[in-house]
Amino acid sequence: MNFTTIMRWLAIIWTVIMLLGCLTPHAEIPGPIVDINDKLMHVVIFAPFSLLWIIAGFRVNTVLIAGFLFGALIEFLQYVLPINRSADWIDLFADCIGTVVGAGLALAWHRLFPNRNF
């Protein structure tokens, strides 16, 4: 497998982990994770999302839009599903910030490793 294929698989796996984690009923989330600042957690989980997808070969603008929409989808699902989770506009804002941070990290990656295509 080449580098791009590995990065795409990692991006897919990370996206699924994010979705499952964000849609896990609140009562089933381990205590140490709940204790972490919620908004910081949103930034931290969305940064690798955009980083991996950009390194996997997707355009920065496409990944930014996808990250914003994915964050909105998660918040919507938390609102409508009976999982004892609540939607929050500030969470969505933190998701967007994380997506932008990851894109910045991907651009830095590209400068450090210019021979990698993305």
Rank of each mutant, 00 (worst) to 15 (best):
T15D: 12
T15P: 14
V16K: 04
I17K: 04
I17T: 10
M18G: 10
M18V: 12
L20P: 00
C22K: 10
P25H: 03
P25G: 07
P25D: 05
H26T: 06
A27K: 10
E28I: 00
I29R: 05
I29S: 02
G31S: 07
P32N: 06
I33H: 02
I33T: 04
I33E: 05
I33R: 02
V34R: 14
V34N: 09
V34Q: 13
D35V: 01
D35W: 11
D35F: 08
D35S: 12
I36E: 13
D38N: 13
K39L: 14
K39R: 15
K39E: 11
K39W: 14
M41I: 04
M41G: 12
H42I: 13
V43A: 14
V43R: 10
V44R: 00
V44M: 15
V44C: 12
I45K: 13
F46C: 03
A47S: 15
A47M: 14
P48A: 11
P48V: 11
F49E: 04
S50P: 11
S50R: 10
L51T: 06
W53S: 07
W53V: 04
I55T: 11
I55K: 10
A56P: 09
A56L: 02
G57H: 05
G57D: 02
R59Q: 10
V60G: 01
N61L: 07
T62L: 05
V63C: 05
V63G: 08
V63T: 07
V63K: 08
L64Q: 04
L64F: 06
I65N: 03
A66F: 06
F68C: 11
F68S: 11
L69M: 14
L69E: 08
F70A: 09
F70T: 02
F70P: 01
G71H: 08
G71R: 06
A72K: 01
A72M: 13
A72R: 01
L73S: 12
I74N: 04
F76L: 15
L77W: 05
L77K: 03
L77Q: 06
L77H: 06
Q78G: 03
Y79Q: 12
V80E: 03
V80D: 00
V80I: 15
V80M: 05
V80Q: 02
L81Q: 07
P82M: 03
I83C: 02
I83G: 05
I83T: 03
N84E: 13
N84F: 07
R85H: 00
A87E: 08
A87I: 08
I90W: 15
I90L: 15
I90Y: 15
I90F: 15
